[in-house]
Amino acid sequence: MKLELSGITKTYEGQVVLDHVSVILDDIHAFVIIGPSGGGKTTLLRILAGLEYPDSGKVTIDGEEIQYHESWLRKYRKSIGMVFQSYNLFPHLSALRNITLPLELVHGMSRQDAEARAMELLERFQLKDHTYKKPIQLSGGQKQRVAIARAMAIKPKFLLLDEPTSALDPEFTSEVLDMIEELREEQKDLILVTHEMGFARQVADHVMFVAEGRVMEIGNAGEIFDAPKQGELKQFLDKVLKY
């Protein structure tokens, strides 16, 4: 995919969260955004997801400019997959129903077809035993995998993942990262905000370091992790990679 951001600015109550962010990237398959908490990376992802409006600036994806008004965004959101930090499964619905409900309501599939597609995904990601469980009966890792399966079920143009492992106990992190890697291997384009530097380095083709609302550095994984140019990035990497 092609991504073009020009002059994206966002403020909350006088606080500048994103300050004229401009980026042009061609041929993205796995775009990883890293940076300190509160630096604006989640806000940027939410703007890409059409969940937040920029105060000014333009977002163009594959040559199409995102129109920030509800009716356009509703259609746009249907075409992309979003995965949240805290899973956000619907707690009153089984794993299966969490996946099939959007397929039926939003994508007009029949119940049978929706269930067939959901079962295929659950099976593929070793979640079949949990098909009829409610989220409360699942571990954090299983919940997040169901959430990713839900996002994949709609056959999205690309996936957006907002710190998908940050809320997990360490023992569950790898099963979620394995799943994301598998998606990456099958050429599903994704944009990922993460604190997992080892994983970022492994899957990313482009890495962007965002801090204080600005793009501090951008490059391929090797450039960013092995030869950081900016002092801020060096300091950040030193801190997160210390242990």
């Binding site: 059409g50 259609k75 249907k78 805290s86 956000n88 009153h92 939003v106």
Partner: peptide, 25 residues
């Protein structure tokens, strides 16, 4: 709020969000 946002991100209409997500809970 996260559930409302999730419904939104999945493309649910407001009516469907109330009917399938909010009211049952």
């Amino acid at each position: 709020k996260t559930q409302l946002e999730t419904a939104k991100s999945l493309g649910f209409t407001k009516r469907d969000t109330y009917r399938y997500i909010i009211i049952p809970q």
